[in-house]
């Protein structure tokens, strides 16, 4: 403000020089892609993402190390119909010191999603940047969409690079050629993990819109995660034990229906869906996620299923996860679109 004369000069210059830009000779990038770019840059520069990256990386390499040191016995186990899928074995073999990677991911995925999303909207609101941003010519939904997309791009890159690293390390160390089916299965696993993290991300974005304090939304997100991983099974068991008769006194048909009911309740928990889906995909010999009768099992040869069949088994799980993600996201839209923007 000290140089008012300079200012008036520069402004008049500006009007002369830049008028051509509004005529649209060059189309500038859309606000949405600019926002996604900025969000990704923010993530990359933040300590939070570095911490998460090292956490996931550590788990991955730990799990890989454990499986590599046990791969020999796992592959030479003739009792196991899946023994020939070396790369799937790399992801699932363990000697008990560390759970396999997909199990670890069912714990860490929520943490990844929650910590990437818990402060998306409320931190902007608290810092006063939300009003400033909303006063620009951009659609309101672009903001939450860009936040979601940028975090998902990060997660997607992370998972794909981890999968490729795993395949590369496997190739280098064992020298065994990878089957196309294994590639399909591994990338299906990556996709399901991606959707799973997406669910938690959209849930935490929803919480960040609902609550004004970042601490509240983070705590609520972690609370939901802990409840689902630790207490939910307990509660389902308690309730079914109290309400239903002892399965020992039931006819087999009834016992089966009863078992089905319990597992359906358990499937309300997204981590259950995720575990079911990944287990089926990474262990081709898994034929069903529910109980099988003796008649169904009779004459069956314990052999791996083709990829398409495994995919058919987990299709309900995948659609369930997708539906939960979409639901959370739709709710976020609903809350955010008509909300009053004030700092």
């Amino acid at each position: 403000m000290k140089s008012l004369t300079v200012f008036s000069r520069s402004l008049s210059l500006k009007n002369k020089d830049y008028n051509h830009s509004s005529e649209g000779a060059v189309f500038p990038a859309s606000p949405f892609s600019i926002m996604v770019g900025k969000e990704i840059a923010d993530h990359l520069r933040s300590w939070r993402f570095i911490v998460l990256l090292s956490l996931i990386g550590l788990t991955f390499f730990g799990a890989l190390y454990v499986s590599l040191s046990n791969i020999k016995s796992a592959v030479s186990n003739t009792q196991d119909p899946d023994r020939l899928f070396l790369y799937l074995k790399l992801l699932t073999t363990t000697d008990g010191t560390l759970p396999p990677f997909h199990v670890l991911l069912s714990f860490l995925g929520p943490l990844l999603g929650i910590s990437l999303g818990f402060d998306t909207i409320n931190s902007e609101q608290n810092a006063g940047t939300l009003t400033r941003l909303m006063a620009q010519p951009l659609y309101r939904d672009n903001l939450i969409l860009s936040k979601f997309v940028s975090a998902m791009v990060m997660v997607g890159c992370l998972f794909v690079s981890l999968a490729l690293l795993m395949i590369g390390a496997g190739l280098l160390i064992t020298g065994v050629k990878i089957e196309p089916e294994e590639v399909l299965r591994i990338f299906a696993f990556v996709f399901i993990s991606f959707v799973y993290v997406g669910f938690w991300l959209s849930l935490s974005i929803l919480l960040s819109i609902r609550f004004k304090q970042t601490a509240t939304s983070a705590l609520t997100g972690i609370g939901i995660w802990l409840f689902l991983t630790v207490f939910y099974k307990l509660v389902v068991n308690l309730v079914t034990k109290a309400l239903f008769p002892d399965p020992a006194f039931l006819a087999p048909q009834q016992a089966l229906a009863y078992q089905e009911l319990i597992s359906n309740f358990l499937r309300l928990d997204p981590s259950q869906l995720y575990t079911d889906a990944t287990t089926t995909l990474l262990m081709p010999s898994v034929r069903s996620l529910g109980p099988l009768t003796m008649e169904q099992m009779a004459m069956a040869i314990p052999s791996p299923l083709p990829f398409k069949e495994s995919l058919m088994i987990v299709w309900p799980q995948v659609s369930g996860l997708l539906a939960a993600t979409v639901l959370c996201f739709a709710l976020s839209y609903y809350l955010f679109m008509r909300r009053e923007i004030r700092s």
Binding site: A127, G128, T129, T131, R132, A135, P137, L138
Partner: peptide, 18 residues
């Protein structure tokens, strides 16, 4: 959107990305 293209708004407690 059309309005915001033409109007510059300075809120009372303006915030920036720190």
């Amino acid at each position: 959107i059309a309005v915001k293209r033409k109007v510059g708004y300075l809120p009372d407690s303006v915030g920036f990305y720190d």
